[in-house]
């Protein structure tokens, strides 16, 4: 089975609120002291792919679209034993939305060859749009299933488990197929072995410019301007918490219970 996993490098979503600042001119988060990480759902996707490869023969290609720093996410994927890695470098480094990303990823995938399974994270920890998977499927003209948390290869395709509001569903699907991956307790990303981290530095990474995959600046602009961030602001939060007071813990619990009960009764 040939598997392609799309990875996105994002600003560390665990950055403390106080360290979070906005680059108002570019309407995006300021880099500040935060580090760059692989988006968690992309890591879940890679983990799901690695587990699938352990059970069924296959090859994993890691693909990312981003600035040159995004090579780090590919190195980490290689350290986890992805077979191939490809970076499409975003020379301009401007804000990219799901539409432009899907366009570029689709062009790169067409050039990389045929894949049975194309896996993306359900959403990214920065913009959280959750659109890329679906858009990519349409760009590639493939069917897709979202919120998948485990995959098994079958004789003529794959069986998927995907999460829904109240539980889960089993989906049978033919390949090629695009899936968006969500997390569960089985696809918690593994961490690389130290030796593999050292080795990954020496593995080849295919490095393409947009021109290498026949995407023009006009294509990018067209897709990019269709969806524009016009404002980005840090919300002010002003709620003043009233701490329940009391001479003893019993008194406090009593007062707390009464507050709760009055809200529950009116709800």
């Amino acid at each position: 089975m040939k598997i392609l996993v799309c990875l996105k490098q994002i600003l560390d979503p665990d950055i403390p609120p106080r360290d979070f600042a906005i680059d108002r001119d570019n309407r995006r988060a300021a880099r500040g002291s935060a580090n760059l990480v692989t988006n968690i759902f992309c890591e879940n996707a890679l983990e799901t792919a690695l587990q699938l490869r352990e059970k069924a023969e296959g090859e994993i290609t890691a693909l990312t679209f981003g600035p040159s720093s995004a090579e780090d996410v590919l190195r980490k994927a290689l350290a986890l034993k992805a077979d191939h890695a490809c970076l499409v470098e975003d020379e301009a480094g401007e804000y990219r939305n799901s539409a432009t990303t899907a366009l570029v990823l689709a062009a790169a995938i067409r050039k990389l060859g045929e894949f049975d399974l194309i896996m993306v994270g359900r959403e990214a920890g920065d913009w959280g749009a959750g659109q890329t998977g679906g858009l990519l499927a349409e760009q590639l003209g493939l069917p897709s299933v979202s919120f998948v948390d485990s995959i098994e290869a079958t004789a003529d395709g794959v069986t998927l488990r995907r999460q829904t509001e109240l539980g889960w569903e089993k989906v049978e699907a033919t390949t090629p197929l695009v899936v968006t991956i969500t997390n569960n307790d089985e696809n918690v990303p593994r961490i690389p072995k130290t030796r593999d981290i050292m080795m990954s530095a020496r593995k080849p990474v295919t490095n393409w410019k947009l021109s290498d995959i026949d995407v023009t600046c006009d294509d990018i602009t067209a897709a990019g301007t269709a969806l524009e961030v016009v404002d980005l602001a840090i919300p002010e939060k002003t709620t003043e918490c009233e701490f329940i007071e009391g001479d003893s813990i019993d008194e406090k619990i009593d007062a707390f219970a009464k507050r709760l009960a009055s809200i529950v009764q009116s709800a």
Partner: peptide, 15 residues
């Protein structure tokens, strides 16, 4: 909400 709830974005859809 974007950036894990740390910011609010206003987005315009032009197509």
């Amino acid at each position: 909400s974007v950036y894990g709830g740390k910011a609010i974005a206003t987005v315009e859809l032009r197509a």
